[in-house]
């Protein structure tokens, strides 16, 4: 276990360094410097600016400076937001996205798992077919379709729910449900098949033969083991909610980091793109790491080390 954690930690840090490196060099291949805009400054001013930000140095020196700054938690300064440090922007915007994301994850788990269980226990009946039909459609419909349909139905036509901003708990309903729809459907399908598999195992038959009640059999025996495959999905779930936030925050005009990231791309705010990419990638990589560890803790049968 310890060996595995050490090995994985090394891979995690290597990946983060790799991503930062890729991001840095990719962003430097984009033609046009950060100070070239319609109101181009004079040559002298340009030279001064470049000296100030160290852009006159060779690329490798710039790379070294960037990585050293990164190690100190400094992601540079936004170009479009009047010299605001990117870290400050992230600290400002990320909590909004994180709150929305957590609500979405909670919805996905709270609804997805019971739906899958109910479908499995009613296998082949109309309820199973109905739930699985919804779930199959759910994984085929892109986030922006869900978002816009919900927006038109509940926001524009019925006028029941607010369609932009995040000012009250009511504001969370549409965006959070949009984010949760795909992972919820996916989890329901996963939960159903894993529950069916567990229900066909010998120990369940033994429990039934011993006269364990239906309720106890499901909650004490079957549910625990069938949750294991669902846990592996938590990693991709986080990734989906994070990238899904780009679309959802754009559609529902939510002032979070996902929307900010998309804005920085359309504004060509390169340091901001770099900073956000590295930040989001780091979060995702750590999330996956913790999910893997959790998997190991929950199911002692899993051997993480092949040796």
């Amino acid at each position: 276990m310890t060996r595995y954690i050490i090995k994985r930690t090394i891979i995690v840090f290597l990946t983060i360094i790799l991503i930062s490196t890729i991001t840095f060099f990719l962003m430097n291949t984009v033609p046009g410097g950060p100070f070239l805009s319609e109101k181009s400054p004079s040559k002298a001013v340009l030279a001064m600016l470049e000296e100030k930000y160290g852009l006159d140095k060779p690329l490798l020196v710039q790379y070294k400076n960037y990585m050293v700054a990164l190690a100190h938690g400094d992601l540079g300064v936004s170009l479009k937001k009047k010299g605001q440090p990117i870290v400050a922007i992230i600290v400002d915007k990320f909590p909004v996205s994180a709150r929305l994301g957590s609500v979405a994850v909670a919805i996905a788990v709270i609804f997805g798992i019971p739906i899958g269980c109910i479908a499995a226990l009613n296998r082949g009946k109309w309820l199973d077919n109905l739930l699985m039909f919804i779930a199959t459609v759910g994984i085929a419909v892109p986030g922006f379709v869900v978002a816009t349909s919900l927006m038109i139905i509940f926001g524009v036509k019925l006028g029941l729910l607010p369609t932009f901003g995040l000012n009250s708990p009511l504001h969370y309903i549409l965006p959070a449900f949009t984010l949760a729809f795909y992972p919820m459907s996916y989890m329901a399908r996963l939960m159903r098949s894993s529950m069916l598999e567990v229900l066909s195992l010998d120990y369940i038959r033994t429990a039934k033969a011993k006269g364990v009640s239906q309720f106890k059999m499901i909650f004490k025996h079957a549910l625990r083991n069938s949750l294991i495959p669902v846990i592996t999905y938590l990693g991709p779930l986080m990734a989906y909610v994070l990238t899904g936030s780009f679309v959802v925050e754009k559609i529902f005009t939510i002032p979070g980091l996902g929307g900010e990231f998309i804005n920085s791309i359309t504004n060509r705010d390169y340091p901001m793109i770099m900073g956000t990419t590295i930040f989001l990638a780091t979060i995702l990589i750590f999330m996956n790491f913790f999910v893997d560890l959790l998997y190991k803790v929950v199911d002692p049968r899993v051997t993480l080390d092949k040796e």
Binding site: L14, G32, T243, I273, T277, N288
Partner: peptide, 20 residues
Amino acid sequence: VIYTVPDILVIILLSVVLKA
């Protein structure tokens, strides 16, 4: 290593960079 890389982020990054 490629598996751990968050794909959507890199795709967005590359499509920004490769366009020009």
